[in-house]
């Protein structure tokens, strides 16, 4: 597969490490969240046949974490974003 890195352009998926569902961005605060809430964050995932937002790490590249929106049926990649930008847009900070 080829992932169109937002900074570096097309790169072979071999250079990346796959993590999984991009919902991992939304980590609850451990000081305020319930164990139940944290359990859901850690373990529960959707498994769609179709568009899936997922985290990829450009380990053999520039070390950027990316959010890749990929069709799990066709492998078509619909969108690639820097995970840091997505995280900030979702309100994450420090």
């Amino acid at each position: 597969m080829i992932i169109h890195h937002p900074i570096l352009g097309p790169r072979d998926a071999q250079e990346f490490v796959y993590l999984g569902d991009a919902s991992l961005i939304g980590r609850p605060d451990g000081m305020t969240a319930s164990i139940e809430e944290f359990h859901n964050y850690t373990y529960l995932r959707d498994n769609p046949a179709g568009a899936h937002r997922e985290l990829w790490y450009h380990e053999q590249g520039d070390r950027s974490w990316l959010v890749v929106t990929r069709n799990t049926v066709t492998h078509e990649i619909l969108q690639v974003e820097l995970a840091r930008d997505v995280a900030r847009a979702e309100g994450r900070s420090k």
Partner: peptide, 14 residues
């Protein structure tokens, strides 16, 4: 890899 995840994704403004 994990530290980069924490730095870029979980706490992007640190």
């Amino acid at each position: 890899r994990h530290l980069e995840f924490c730095r870029q994704v979980l706490w992007p403004d640190m």
